[in-house]
């Protein structure tokens, strides 16, 4: 008996320690970055462009670049991946085709970002002739976000209870009406989660945008202008030893942006689920 309790307690203890390590490492990183970076973050830092060959000045252009590149990525990838998810979850069933798409999506999600960057560089920068640009960067990031949004949305659509679909079909709704009016609204929180995850990948990406969007720290005038995202800015400042202070400042702003996106979407999703009545 004693022995069994001992093992039990040790087991629980180990789980507890693992949990603590996870939470602590996350906290340490965030706190450290904020502590190092926040003192630099002033109104001027947010609203001015880099100056003196990036050694001084702010990060306004890079914030614009990150937001724009992410927006393009999400606008391009969301419709495609949600449509594909609907097809896979509702129409295709478990065929060799859907299994292939699923396998492809999982493989895509695991490919190192530099490979996407190389692909984007050859396809969009080079062949398509978009040069280093907002567009090339955005579309490359769209490819990276695609498998994430696809798989998460597919799962969200799959878990919509059959009873809802049957209820709708039994009233003479067509399959399309059922999907559009019942399945998608019910799956929406899950789909939004997928979009946010895809967004997270796009916001945080460095290698792929460095190779496709360039490193031009000015506010772009059109989608064909090169840009420098915040992550590339951090990379440049750190590797060329231009200003560690400003690198941390940029990182702090980036962390806050990601946290803000996550918290807002969590809040919106919870409110939406409550409206659906699923709060029980």
């Amino acid at each position: 008996m004693e022995h069994r309790y001992l093992i039990n307690n040790v087991g629980i203890g180990l789980l507890w320690v693992s949990g603590c390590i996870t939470v602590l490492s996350l906290l340490v990183i965030i706190v450290y970055i904020l502590a190092q970076g926040l003192p630099v973050v002033t109104w001027g830092f947010l609203t001015q462009n880099p100056a003196s060959h990036d050694r001084a000045g702010g990060i306004f252009a890079t914030i614009v670049a990150t937001v724009a590149v992410t927006l393009i990525a999400i606008l391009v990838s969301t419709p495609i991946s949600v449509a594909a998810a609907i097809y896979m979850a509702e129409y295709a069933g478990d065929s060799w085709l859907t299994n292939l798409v699923r396998f492809g999506a999982d493989s895509l999600a695991g490919i190192p970002s530099i490979v996407f960057g190389l692909f984007g560089y050859i396809m969009f920068v080079h062949y398509a002739g978009w040069n280093y640009s907002l567009l090339a960067g955005g579309v490359t990031l769209a490819l990276m976000a695609l498998p994430i949004i696809l798989r998460v949305s597919e799962e969200a659509i799959k878990v919509v209870p059959d009873s809802y679909k049957h209820g709708s079909l039994a009233m003479g709704a067509s399959k399309w009406q059922t999907i559009w009016k019942v399945v998608l609204p019910t799956a929406l929180p899950g789909i939004i989660t997928g979009v946010i995850l895809g967004m997270g990948r796009a916001v945080g990406e460095t290698a792929a945008v460095l190779l496709t969007a360039g490193s031009w720290a000015k506010v772009p005038g059109s989608v064909f202008d090169p840009v420098r995202t915040m992550t590339v800015h951090i990379y440049t400042l750190a590797t060329e030893n231009l200003s560690m202070k400003n690198a941390y400042g940029t990182a702090a702003v980036l962390v806050i942006m990601v946290l803000a996106i996550t918290l807002t979407s969590n809040y919106l999703t919870r409110r939406y689920i409550k409206k659906l009545g699923g709060s029980r």
Binding site: S163, H166, G172, G277, G278
Partner: peptide, 16 residues
Amino acid sequence: RKQIGMVFQKPNPFPM
């Protein structure tokens, strides 16, 4: 199905 409606075993109101 519009003319022949159906009520199921488990109540299945839509989440709206």
